[in-house]
Design a protein around this nucleic acid. Sequence first.
RNA 1: GGUCCGUUGGAGAAGUGGCUUAACUCACAUGCCUUUCACGCAUGCAUUCACGAGUUCGAAUCUCGUACGGAUCACCA
Length: 550
Amino acid sequence: MNNYKKLADLIFPEITETIEDLERRYPKRDLPAGAKVTRFAPSPTGFLHTGSLFASMISRKMAKDSNGIFYTRLEDTDQKREVAGSGDSLIDQLNKFGVTPDEGYLGTEKELGNYGPYVQSQRADIYKVVIKYMLENNMAYPCFCSPEELSEMRKVQESKKENFGYYADYAKCSKLSVEEAIERIQNGENFVIRFRSQGDYHNKVAIDDAIRGHIEMAENDQHLVIYKSDGLPTYHFAHLVDDHFMRTTHVTRGEEWMPSLPMHIELFASMNWDAPTYAHLPVIMKLDNGNRRKLSKRKDLEAAVSFFLEQGYPIEGFMEYLYTIANSNYEGWRGENPDLDKDEFKFSFDKMSLDGALFDLAKVQFLCKEKLGRMNTKTFAEESYKWAKEYSSELANLIEKNQPFYQQIVSIEREKENPRKDYEKYSDILPLIKFFYNEYYNEMVKELEFPENYSLENVKEVLNEYVKVFDLELSEEDWFNQMKEIATKCGYATNRKDYKKNPEAYKGQVSDVAAILRLVITLRLQSPNLYYVMKILGKDEVSRRIGLFL
RNA sequence: GGUCCGUUGGAGAAGUGGCUUAACUCACAUGCCUUUCACGCAUGCAUUCACGAGUUCGAAUCUCGUACGGAUCACCA
């Protein structure tokens, strides 16, 4: 037995499986030509980030468009940062946005597929098989350097203006003999395992990125840690092993990973494995004091996907926005195909921009207003109720009290060519429809004040005239003719042109007459079409409200 | 400090040497329509593509330099 093997057996005596065993256990996937296998691999450190949703949405779409597989994997190798329960909420939120995995981690104790386990902390033995192999072949070695030594080393490098890290002559433990390593381990010293890089910083590696095209970077020469003292692998090593054995073809991830690309390339090459195709996605940005920076969960509400859920932005509208920043030709396609499902659009990597888009809430709002405005009444009522049950008990109670009434309210100026678009999110509903409900009206009415240009006498005069002819059975046209008659009687112009021509001759115009009625009935200067509002409130309630003022 | 990436209006962008007097979408402004608001319609909003130099009959598009912005350099992912 050679000494490398002895070292490997000393560290991992329990591991008897080989790489070949793993290759057999996780065979190449049987998929149609060109099918992409993609993944979303979050760490359970909090809630779903908008940038992560963006990346996972693209991964899923790429797989779907090619009849491939999109799977999820939980990267929980950092126990310190782990937030209990966040794995489940990650999956839950992903599903809410329609980014549903075909395979993989589906929540605690739930997974689907033959390439698992899909939770990294449960894959320790798999990683160990590969590390043992690397140890046996002197591709990796134990390192006994303490954190203090390492930070000391970094200070030296900083002062000498050299590259930071564990490489070349700085890689002290790479120079240790196997015999010495064995001895120190037998003495119970703490250690990690590092990859023995063969790279030379002065050479270049050529890499093809699916989005950025051909790039050249310096070769990796860092002896990175692959196995931590807690027995778990680092990200880089888990990426190598998992994406190989899960047979990932395309790794789509944020551009913050670009600098570690040479490292990953070397890792794959050292094992003689084909590296996946990489696609480094632009990061969504935000303007902060004139500078762009990454959307930050700490500073920006929009960075957490839960914000949009809580506010009640319609999922479809929000995803529409993500699509427009993902592929530059999407908006044009949407313009030509307003009625097709967005899934029918085919994504391509070369229509992705290279620098990150500034997150544009105004555009999200526009798209959401579009979606909500064009929903039919039934869907709108259902969806808003679904939202209310989860996020606004106040609205939910109101709806439950009288569902048909609620449907009528939200049906105003809906299901027509140019529908009304006054909601951008479900949380906008309640404040805008409160006045329909007596319990709110009776409270709010106490605070009503007429604007200066409506004197008390004028208000009374108009209301008195209206009471005389009050009739809700009329057609909209006849109803409006009543308004005009009242206008004439009380000294208002019946149309805008007359008033503009000779403003001195009138108290105002019909719109002022309508405004008086509107104020009394809705307590607001703006409301949906008054005629419909009154019809929905009904004769009794409308006369009650007018009566209150007279 | 090293390395990599990027730079077309307020935002997203099209454009890859002449068809560009720089598409389209959002925002903004003005006007029209209108019982208010929202909708809708119309018009306006980069004489110029970060800057400088070069190549060319011709450059937003090619080359070089400068500036600016971003990412990253952990036993975090």
